[in-house]
């Protein structure tokens, strides 16, 4: 709360977490596990933006899969078809999704009401059609393949472990910046507008400007995640960026709880891993996994309903209660 004090009790768990996260490729050579965890990292990047947008600024987007897709196709196209360097592709993805986010958010956030949710829903559908129909750019329903691996200083990052480190390195930077942001004047303004729009206006907060900026950031993060995904996986197709994915992203933000980054991040890890449960649960039988995948939507739905009923405030609420207990004990 404004104090720049470094608390040993937060540093030690964070350091342990970092060692654990970055140690995975050293402990396990299981390529499937690393791929699943890399995909988890991609979703964590998107959900961080959703947490800022939904949990802090109180806005709902039903079209973030579209930004995810625009990021993926943009970088895939300029790198594979135009021969741009990989980092330039990522930059192009971020720029294009930022501009797209601005153009979508400005008009819909100027109006009072749920125009943003409607506009993003429509945008998501339009982009889904574009991904399928703009064959020359996107490869159409068959998808876009042959996307080169990321490379740094001329060295291609083509191993599962390398991709894992790359993605989780980006996750770390994104989370660090976001954590700084939510603890700052800007984060306070976001929580304020979530608490009372009239109160926020009376504090001189430019509500529209703030919401638009947060939306642009969340769109850019989805674009960044899309670009990373495209190069790490090497193949993209329209189904990866459907309405279904947009809804799943909202579900992660809701399940995670408001005014928190840790809650939505946990939710992203949880919901992303469910269909790949066999990667983290060693003895899981093939038929059990197939059942989970078949009932995936229902598992999501039930998980969310159960959390809403039994865990007030979502995962963020649970985390707050645990840390309050810890403080009382310690």
């Amino acid at each position: 709360m404004g104090r720049a004090r470094i608390d040993i009790r937060t540093i030690v768990p964070l350091a342990l977490l970092a060692v654990l996260v970055f140690g995975v490729p050293l402990l396990s050579a299981d390529r499937y596990l690393l791929k699943v965890l890399t995909f988890v990292g991609v979703n964590v990047i998107i959900v961080t933006g959703m947490a800022l947008l939904f949990g802090y600024a109180g806005q709902v987007s039903l079209g973030h899969a579209a930004f995810y897709g625009i990021g993926a196709y943009t970088s895939a196209y300029v790198v594979t078809s135009l021969g741009w360097p990989w980092l330039a592709g990522v930059a192009a993805a971020i720029v294009l999704t930022s501009v797209g986010g601005l153009l979508l958010a400005l008009p819909s956030l100027r109006l009072k009401g749920h125009y943003l949710a409607m506009a993003t829903l429509g945008f998501g559908e339009i982009m889904r059609v574009v991904f399928v129909e703009a064959r020359g750019l996107t490869g159409g329903p068959d998808g876009f393949s042959g996307i080169p691996f990321p490379s740094l200083v001329g060295i291609s990052i083509d191993s599962a472990g390398g991709n894992y480190w790359l993605i989780w390195g980006v996750v770390t930077v994104v989370l660090a910046f976001s954590a700084n942001l939510v603890r700052s004047r800007v984060g306070r303004a976001m929580r304020a507008l979530h608490g009372s729009e009239s109160g926020a206006l009376a504090c001189g907060i430019d509500l529209t400007g703030l919401k638009v900026r947060v939306f642009v950031i969340s769109a850019a993060l989805a674009g960044l995640a899309g670009a990373l995904y495209a190069h790490v996986v090497g193949f993209i197709s329209p189904s990866t960026f459907s309405l279904h994915v947009s809804v799943l992203l909202v579900a992660m933000a809701v399940l995670g709880g408001t005014r928190s980054l840790a809650g939505p991040v946990l939710a992203a890890i949880l919901l992303t891993t469910i269909p790949f449960a066999d990667a983290v649960i060693p003895g899981l039988s093939r038929s059990a996994l197939e059942t989970i995948q078949e009932w995936q939507e229902d598992v999501y739905g039930l998980t969310i309903i159960a959390v809403m009923i039994f865990v007030p405030g979502g995962l963020a609420g649970a985390l707050r209660r645990i840390s309050a207990l810890g403080r009382r004990a310690g």
């Binding site: 709360m1 404004g2 942001l181 700052s184 004047r185 800007v186 306070r188 303004a189 929580r191 304020a192 608490g195 009372s196 009239s198 109160g199 926020a200 009376a202 504090c203 001189g204 907060i205 900026r213 950031i217 005014r259």
Partner: peptide
């Protein structure tokens, strides 16, 4: 029109929004 889920101190700090500068 208070920010119910923020501390009293944070409520007042939010009031300083217009006279402070830190941006994104």
């Amino acid at each position: 029109q208070l920010f119910e889920e923020m501390s009293a101190l944070e409520n007042v700090m939010a009031g300083a929004h217009a006279v402070t500068k830190a941006g994104f």
